[in-house]
């Protein structure tokens, strides 16, 4: 039985561009422009796209680390964007985030133990003795030795720091964790350790993940369903297997074909896209992808394609599908 844990509807985030002496607004960077999706309890939704597609902004908007311009975010039926300060504080125990850069995500002046105590202090969880036990439980759970609690972040490697970042997110027992490129900064051998850890944690703790990444093989590996973004808009969403075997959107197809395959004999039918990503401050009219799309027709330049379900659970925004 699938049950929606997180529902995002028509999420929009425009960043104003200020110019001149009086800082008047001359335009907007349309970082996220109408994104809707549902995440079911216990599943992993992968979110992929290239730089400037709005995947990070989207993740942070859901958590209200960035205040979205408009839209609706529902967590277990509660309207997150309507919560007041106190309500939001409580909500933060349900939704947590793990960041990309393991060097910037830990306070250099806190020991690992202090970093892990912080969430419990903020939420006044447990008595002091239980807190300590919880810190050790967390360290153990992410595969770190207990004595690391008294060490500083700079004494650790990237992979170990990322484990601490994961432990910090788990300290408040959240139901949903947004993973914002959690393995992008890690070497492949360490990346696989962290991916396995995330899978184990998800099974043990029945966690729900939103996994934001630019690496498609990693996303395929960890996700149940995958959402493809382009310039702040949704291009395609489908079950992971379905998306990787039968991509429908020309952008998804190009993206998949562009991945270098570690097999010298692999047959490649590479679609090489022409040109650069347009700027999200000045997105093309009609379908945002039409400037680089190998099969674009006139209609694509004028009309924004509708988001429609082509097969059960497989949605796509393209005139030609």
């Amino acid at each position: 039985m699938t049950e929606a844990l997180l529902k995002v509807q028509d999420l929009v985030k425009y960043f104003p561009i200020h110019r001149g002496v009086f800082q008047h607004t001359v335009g907007h960077v349309k970082a996220v422009d109408g994104i809707s999706f549902t995440v079911n309890r216990g599943e992993t939704l992968g979110v992929v796209g290239e730089s400037g597609c709005g995947k990070s902004t989207m993740g942070r908007s859901v958590l209200r680390l960035i205040e979205p311009t408009r839209g609706r975010v529902e967590f277990e039926g509660k309207d997150v964007l309507a919560l007041n300060k106190q309500g939001m504080r409580i909500m933060r125990r349900e939704m947590q985030i793990v960041f990309q850069d393991p060097y910037a995500s830990l306070n250099p002046r806190f020991t690992i133990g202090q970093t892990l105590l912080e969430p419990m202090k903020i939420h006044h969880l447990h008595n002091p003795r239980e807190r300590l036990q919880h810190v050790y439980r967390l360290l153990d759970r992410v595969g770190l030795a207990a004595e690391y609690a008294r060490r500083f972040p700079h004494e650790f490697s990237g992979g170990q720091r990322q484990r601490v970042g994961i432990a910090r997110a788990l300290a408040v027992d959240p139901k949903l964790v947004i993973l914002d490129e959690p393995v992008a900064a890690l070497d492949v051998s360490v990346q696989s350790q962290v991916l396995n850890l995330l899978e184990d944690l998800q099974n043990e703790l029945n966690l729900t993940f939103v996994f934001i990444a630019h690496d498609l093989s990693v996303v395929r590996h960890i996700s149940d369903r995958v959402l493809v973004l382009y310039l702040g808009r949704m291009a395609e969403i489908a079950d992971s297997e379905e998306l990787f075997t039968h991509p429908l959107h020309p952008y998804t197809k190009a993206l998949l074909s562009a991945i270098p395959v570690p097999d010298p004999d692999a047959k490649r039918e590479r679609i090489i896209l022409q040109g650069d990503l347009p700027s999200p401050a000045n997105p093309p009219s009609g379908c945002p992808f039409h400037t680089r799309c190998p099969v674009a027709v006139d209609k694509c330049r004028q009309e924004v394609p509708v988001w429609r379900e082509v097969q059960s659970g497989h949605h796509v925004a393209c005139h030609l599908v």
């Binding site: 958590l63 409580i90 933060r92 125990r93 850069d101 910037a104 969430p119 903020i122 939420h123």
Partner: peptide, 17 residues
């Protein structure tokens, strides 16, 4: 803008903290 400050916000810490 550092992520560890963002993490603190995501945990629900007060502005003063």
């Amino acid at each position: 803008e550092f992520d560890y400050v963002q993490a603190e916000r995501a945990l629900g810490a007060s502005h003063a903290r």
